[in-house]
Design a protein around this nucleic acid. Structure first.
Length: 985
DNA sequence: GAGTTTGAAACT
DNA sequence: CAGTTTCAAACTC
C-alpha cells in the first residue's frame, strides 16, 4: 500500500496534491453550511481551508505541481478578503517596507500560509510601536501610539518606526487588549536578496500579552491575514479580541530566517509559525542548521514547540499559567532544502510530510517542552520527545510513555510504550478520542497549500497533554485552549498535514483504526457502545456513506461528551433474546401477552446519541438481517466525516486488521436504494443503517402483533361460523387451534411467519447468499472512480468485483478521494441520497427524477422504477408508465414481478376492490387496529411522552396496521388465485 | 456469454 | 444549459 501510495505521489502529472479530508458530512451538507466555518470556535482549525473556493483553485493548480508565487492578499476571515491592491495590502507594505514583496498573482496560484495566534485576552493597555495604520477594508490597524484612540478609522499616513529586536526590524501592532504583534518589517538584506520575487520565507509571529515581554516576530511578507471571529480590527486601528481565548489568526505572514521568540511565563498568546515554500536553500538551510525551535504558547498556558523541519508537529504541553518558563527560539524553518524549482515542486506536492524521516533527529531538533505544571501532562512536558530512526524508513518518536512511529508514509503510528503507565501516558500521547492503550495510527494528510515537503527533514514531535498538535513548515497552527477535554489536535498543513483533531479539527486515522462497528449484542435492549478494540472480526460488509453520515452526525453532535464520544468505533447492539434464534419463536400466548403490552414492547430505548432515534427492540428477522445475516459480523465503515460544531472529523476506514477492506453492506448496491428495502439503501433516505433497520424491526414487530391480532380474530370468527354450521363439532377448531399453537411453539415458527407474505425477492436472495454481497461492479474504463461505478457511487470500496484497473480501494486512497472531490465539485449532491422521503411515512421520491425515453420507466434502466417508486414531476421521462396512481402498487414488494403480472394484478385488484375491502376490513380487524392505537396512546401516556410523539406513533400504528392488512389481503388474494389456477387445471 | 439497449454520468 | 460522448448496467438472444 505504501508503495502504491508513493507511486501516486508521482504519477498523474505529479499531482500529489493532497486532498483535504473529505467528509461525508461535507458531502451532505449544504454549501452554505460548509462555508459556515466558525473559526473562532475552531481554534485550531486550519483544515477547513479546502472548503472555500480558494482551496479548490489552489488544489487544482497544485495538480500541475508547479511552483507558484503566492497570492499576496491579506484577508480577514468571514469573507473579508483583501487583495494586494486593497488598502490592507498597501498599508502592510507601508508597514513592512519595500522588502515585503506583495506579489500579485492570479488567485488560483494562491498558496496560503497561515499564522494563527491564539490570544488569551488581557486587558492591558495597548501600546504600539507602529505608527502606521493598516487599513483592512474600512477598518484600520493603527499603531500610532500607545493611545488606542489615536488610531483613526482610516489609514494614517504615519510611517512605521521599525523596532529593532535582536537585529531584526520589527513592526509592532498592538491590540486593544494589550497584545503586541511584532512583524518583521524587513528582511535582513542578505536574506532578502536571496529571496526570489514572489517567494516568501518563514515567518514567526508572536503576540504576547505583556508589553514587557513581547515576542519579536519576523515577517518577511504578509500576504494574508486572517482574523477569526472574535477578533476584529477596530476603527481605532487596534486589533480587538473578544473575551476568552479567541484566536487571532494572521494568515500568510511569511518570514525568513529564524527569529528568537520569547514567551513570557504569563504569556497567553500562542505563537504560530509558518514557513514558506521558498525554494531558497540558503535561508531554509541556515535556519535548519541552527535548529531553531519555534515556541508556541497557547492561550491556556500550554507550550508548544515547533522543531525545525518541514512539517514539524506540534504538541502542546500543558503548563500552569504563570509557571511556564519555557523559552525557546522561534523556529522559522523551511523544509525546502532544495535549490531547484523542480525539487521544490515535488516537495510541494508530496503528500507526506513526515515521510522519509529516516535519520535521527538532531539533538537540537528535539522538542523540549518545559513546564512546571503539576498536571498529568507534566511528564510529557518534562520529557523531551526523542526520535529515533527505525528500519523501514520509520521514525520513532517517543514521548512520555508513548511512541510515535512515523512511517515512511503519511502515517503516524501511536503505540503504547512498553512499560508506560496507562492513564498518565495516555495523556501524553496523541490520542484518538482519548483512547489509550491501543495502537493508534494517524494519517498524515498532505496539504496542497503552500509549503514544501521534505523527504529528509526529520520530524520532531512533542507530545503533551494539550490538544493542539500542529506543525507546519509553512503555516502556523494554533493551540486549543480547551482544557476540559482530552482532545488532541494534530495538524500539519502545508506540504503535509497531520490532521488529528478531536476538537475542531480532523481525525484521519488509518483504516481499521477507527471503525464504525455495528454488531448484535446479547442484551435485549438496543444500545450502542464504544468498541474497545480497534480491530474487528467483522465480516466483509460494505457501507454507505450516506448512512454513515447521519450516524456520524449523531456521533459528533454531542459536543459535551467525553473523548470516547469522539471515537469512531461503535458497537451497536441490537435487541435480541439471548440465545434465541433470529426468528424468535413466538407462541400465541406470547403474542397475546405481547398484544396486551404491545406499547411496552415498542418502548423507546434511550440510546446514546449516535442512534438515539432508534427505538425499537425486536427480535424479528429484520433484526437478524441488520447485521447481514451474521450475528457476529460487524459493520466496518470507511469514511471521513466531521462534526458540526466541533469540527470533529473522522475517517472511518473499512479495513480489517488484516488489511482487507470490509464490505459493510452485504447487499446489492444498485442505484436508487430505498429505505424500506435495506438491501437497497444506496441512495435512499439518509438514515443510518441502524436507524433504517431498527425502523424495519419496529415495523415488523408491529406487523407481527397485528397479524396475531387478525389471526386471533379470524379464528374466533371462524370458530363462530363453524359452531353455527357444525354444532356437533364445536371443539374441532379449538383443538386444531391448540394444536397449531403447540406446533408453532415447537417448531419455533411465529404466527406472523405463517401469515406474513413471502419475503421480498431481494431479501430472499440476500439470505440465500448468506449475507454476502450480491453485486459487484464490472467497470472497465472508469477505474471505479466515477459515478458510473456503483461501488464508488455508494461510497464503497470495490471488493470482489470484476472491475479492471480498479482504483477504488485503499491502495489508491488519494486518487479515490480526489475522485470524490471531483464528483462533488461537479455535483455537490452526488453522494446524497437520490431517493428520499420528505418526512417519515411520506412517499419516497427521486430527488432528481429520471430521464427515460424508451423504457417507459418500467425497466430497471429507470432509477425510479428500480427504486420502486413512481415517477414524479421531477422526472423528465417520456412515455412514462411508472405512474403514481396505482393503488395496488406496493413498490416494496414488486421485486421480480414482470409487467404483465403487474398489470394483471393491478386489474384484478381494481376489479374486486370493494369486495376485498369487505372481506378483509372486517369489524374485528378494525377493532384490533383501533385497539393497537389505543394501547399505544395509553402506554405513551404512562410514559409521559409528548403529545406530538404520541400522535405520530399512533399514526404510524395505523399506517402499519393498514399495511399489514393490505399485505395480508394481498397474500390471501394470491393464494386464492393459485388455488383457482390449480382447480382450473 | 456476446451483443444490444438504455439512461445516467461525464464531457464539450 | 443543451447536445454529445462515455460508461456500465440491464436486457436480449
Amino acid at each position: 500500500m505504501f508503495t502504491n501510495r508513493a507511486q501516486q505521489c508521482t504519477d498523474e502529472l505529479d499531482d500529489t496534491t493532497p486532498l483535504p479530508e473529505l467528509t461525508l458530512y461535507d458531502m451532505l451538507e449544504t454549501p452554505s453550511d460548509e462555508q459556515q466555518s466558525d473559526v473562532a470556535a475552531d481554534t485550531g482549525d486550519d483544515e477547513e481551508e479546502y472548503e472555500d473556493e480558494e482551496y479548490l483553485s489552489t488544489s487544482a493548480n497544485d495538480s500541475l505541481n508547479t511552483p507558484r508565487p503566492k497570492k499576496p492578499n491579506v484577508r480577514i476571515l468571514e469573507n473579508k478578503r483583501l487583495t494586494p491592491g486593497a488598502p490592507i495590502g498597501m498599508a502592510l507594505k507601508n508597514i513592512l517596507g519595500e522588502s515585503v514583496k506583495l506579489v500579485t498573482t492570479p488567485p488560483k496560484t494562491t498558496q496560503s500560509t497561515e499564522i494563527k495566534i491564539l490570544n488569551k485576552l488581557q486587558t492591558k493597555p495597548i501600546k504600539t510601536f507602529s505608527n502606521t495604520a493598516v487599513k483592512i477594508g474600512s477598518t484600520t490597524i493603527a499603531s500610532t501610539s500607545a493611545s488606542a484612540a489615536a488610531a483613526a478609522t482610516t489609514t494614517t499616513a504615519t510611517t512605521v518606526t521599525p523596532k529593532q529586536i535582536r537585529g531584526i526590524t520589527m513592526t509592532q501592532i498592538k491590540t486593544t487588549d494589550g497584545k503586541v504583534i511584532y512583524l518583521q518589517k524587513s528582511l535582513p538584506a542578505a536574506d532578502a536578496q536571496k529571496l526570489p520575487v514572489g517567494v516568501t520565507t518563514a515567518t514567526t509571529t508572536t503576540t504576547t500579552a505583556r508589553l514587557t515581554k513581547t515576542v519579536p516576530v519576523s515577517s518577511a511578507g504578509i500576504r494574508q491575514t486572517l482574523l477569526p471571529k472574535g477578533v476584529s480590527i477596530a476603527s481605532t486601528g487596534l486589533i480587538k479580541s473578544s473575551a476568552g481565548s479567541t484566536p487571532i489568526t494572521v494568515r500568510g505572514i511569511t518570514a525568513i530566517g529564524s527569529s528568537p521568540t520569547k514567551i513570557s511565563p504569563n504569556a497567553t498568546t500562542t505563537v504560530t509559525a509558518t514557513l514558506s515554500t521558498s525554494p531558497t536553500t540558503s535561508t531554509a538551510g541556515a535556519v535548519g542548521n541552527k535548529m531553531a525551535i519555534q515556541m508556541v504558547r497557547t492561550a491556556d498556558g500550554k507550550l508548544i514547540k515547533l522543531n525545525q523541519g518541514t512539517a514539524s508537529m506540534l504538541l502542546n504541553a500543558k503548563a500552569a499559567a504563570g509557571a511556564l518558563k519555557a523559552t525557546t527560539t522561534a523556529a522559522t524553518t523551511t523544509t525546502a532544502a532544495t535549490t531547484t524549482t523542480d525539487t521544490q515542486a515535488k516537495a510541494v506536492g508530496s503528500p507526506v510530510i513526515i515521510k522519509g524521516a529516516l535519520k535521527q533527529l538532531p539533538a537540537g531538533a528535539t522538542l523540549k517542552t518545559t513546564t512546571t505544571s503539576a498536571s498529568t501532562a507534566t511528564s510529557n512536558a518534562t520529557s523531551p520527545a526523542a526520535s529515533t530512526a527505525l528500519p523501514g524508513g520509520k521514525l520513532l518518536v517517543q514521548s512520555a510513555g508513548k511512541q510515535i512511529v512515523v512511517a515512511s508514509k503519511n502515517i503516524i503510528k501511536l503505540s503504547p510504550k512498553p512499560g508506560a503507565s496507562g492513564a498518565t501516558a495516555s495523556n501524553a500521547s496523541i490520542q484518538l478520542g482519548g483512547k489509550s492503550g491501543g495502537v493508534q495510527i494517524v494519517r498524515v494528510l498532505p496539504s496542497n497549500k503552500s509549503g514544501t515537503s521534505t523527504l529528509t527533514s526529520p520530524q520532531n514531535v512533542s507530545i503533551g497533554r494539550p490538544r493542539t498538535i500542529s506543525s507546519n513548515n509553512s503555516s502556523s497552527t494554533s493551540s486549543n485552549n480547551n482544557n476540559s477535554s482530552n482532545t488532541t489536535n494534530v495538524s500539519i498543513t502545508n506540504a503535509g498535514k497531520i490532521v488529528m483533531k478531536t476538537m475542531g479539527g480532523s481525525i484521519v486515522p488509518l483504516p481499521s483504526m477507527q471503525t464504525l462497528v455495528s454488531r448484535r449484542g446479547p442484551s435485549g435492549a438496543a444500545n450502542i457502545t464504544h468498541a474497545k478494540t480497534p480491530s474487528s472480526q467483522a465480516q466483509p460488509i460494505k457501507h454507505r456513506l450516506s448512512d454513515l453520515n447521519v450516524q456520524i452526525k449523531h456521533m459528533t453532535g454531542e459536543g459535551g461528551e467525553g473523548p470516547d464520544a469522539k471515537k469512531a468505533r461503535y458497537v451497536i447492539s441490537m435487541p435480541r433474546v439471548p440465545g434465541a434464534p433470529r426468528t424468535t419463536p413466538v407462541t400465541q400466548q406470547q403474542l397475546q401477552k405481547l398484544m396486551a403490552t404491545r406499547p411496552s414492547q415498542v418502548k423507546r430505548i434511550s440510546l446514546p446519541s449516535p442512534v438515539r432515534s432508534s427505538k425499537t427492540a425486536d427480535t424479528s428477522k429484520a433484526a437478524a438481517d441488520s447485521d447481514g445475516g451474521n450475528s457476529t459480523g460487524r459493520k466496518v465503515y470507511n469514511l471521513i466525516t466531521k462534526s458540526n460544531a466541533n469540527g470533529v472529523k473522522y475517517m472511518i476506514c473499512n479495513k480489517t486488521s488484516e488489511g482487507k477492506p470490509h464490505s459493510v453492506y452485504n447487499t446489492t448496491m444498485r442505484r436508487g436504494y430505498t429505505l424500506n428495502d435495506p438491501a437497497k439503501i444506496r441512495r435512499g433516505v439518509p438514515l443510518t443503517v441502524q436507524q433504517a433497520k431498527l425502523k424495519q424491526m419496529r415495523l415488523q414487530h408491529q406487523r407481527k402483533v397485528l397479524a396475531h391480532n387478525q389471526t386471533k380474530l379470524r379464528q374466533a370468527h371462524l370458530q363462530k361460523q363453524q359452531q353455527k354450521v357444525k354444532p356437533t363439532q364445536p371443539q374441532q377448531p379449538k383443538e386444531q387451534q391448540q394444536q397449531d399453537q403447540s406446533t408453532q411453539g415447537k417448531s419455533g415458527k411465529a404466527l406472523f411467519d405463517v401469515l406474513k407474505p413471502p419475503a421480498a425477492p431481494a431479501a430472499s436472495a440476500l439470505d440465500a447468499l448468506g449475507g454476502s454481497r450480491r453485486k459487484h461492479c464490472n467497470c472497465s474504463k472508469s477505474q471505479c472512480l466515477k459515478l458510473y461505478c456503483d461501488c464508488f457511487a455508494n461510497g464503497e470500496f470495490c471488493q470482489d468485483c470484476t472491475c479492471k484497473d480498479c482504483f477504488n480501494n485503499l491502495d489508491y486512497e488519494v486518487k479515490r478521494e480526489r475522485a470524490i472531490r471531483s464528483c462533488l465539485e461537479r455535483n455537490p449532491s452526488a453522494f446524497k441520497p437520490k431517493i428520499t422521503a420528505p418526512n417519515s411515512g411520506d412517499m419516497r421520491l427521486h430527488n432528481k427524477g429520471c430521464n427515460c425515453k424508451r423504457s417507459g420507466c418500467l425497466k430497471n434502466y429507470c432509477e425510479c422504477y428500480e427504486a420502486k417508486i413512481p415517477c414524479s414531476s421531477m422526472c423528465k421521462c417520456m412515455g412514462c408508465r411508472n405512474m403514481e396512481d396505482r393503488p395496488d402498487v406496493d413498490m416494496d414488494s414488486m421485486d421480480g414481478l414482470n409487467d404483465a403480472k403487474f398489470h394483471a394484478k393491478h386489474k384484478d385488484v381494481n376489479g374486486t376492490q370493494e369486495n376485498r375491502s369487505n372481506l378483509y376490513l372486517t369489524d374485528e380487524v378494525i377493532e384490533a387496529t383501533i385497539m393497537c392505537m389505543i394501547s399505544r396512546i395509553v402506554m405513551n401516556e404512562k410514559q409521559n411522552m409528548a403529545l406530538e410523539d404520541t400522535e405520530r406513533e399512533v399514526m404510524e400504528e395505523l399506517g402499519e396496521s393498514l399495511n399489514q392488512i393490505i399485505t395480508f389481503a394481498k397474500e390471501k388474494n394470491d393464494t386464492k388465485q393459485q388455488d383457482e389456477t390449480k382447480a382450473a387445471t
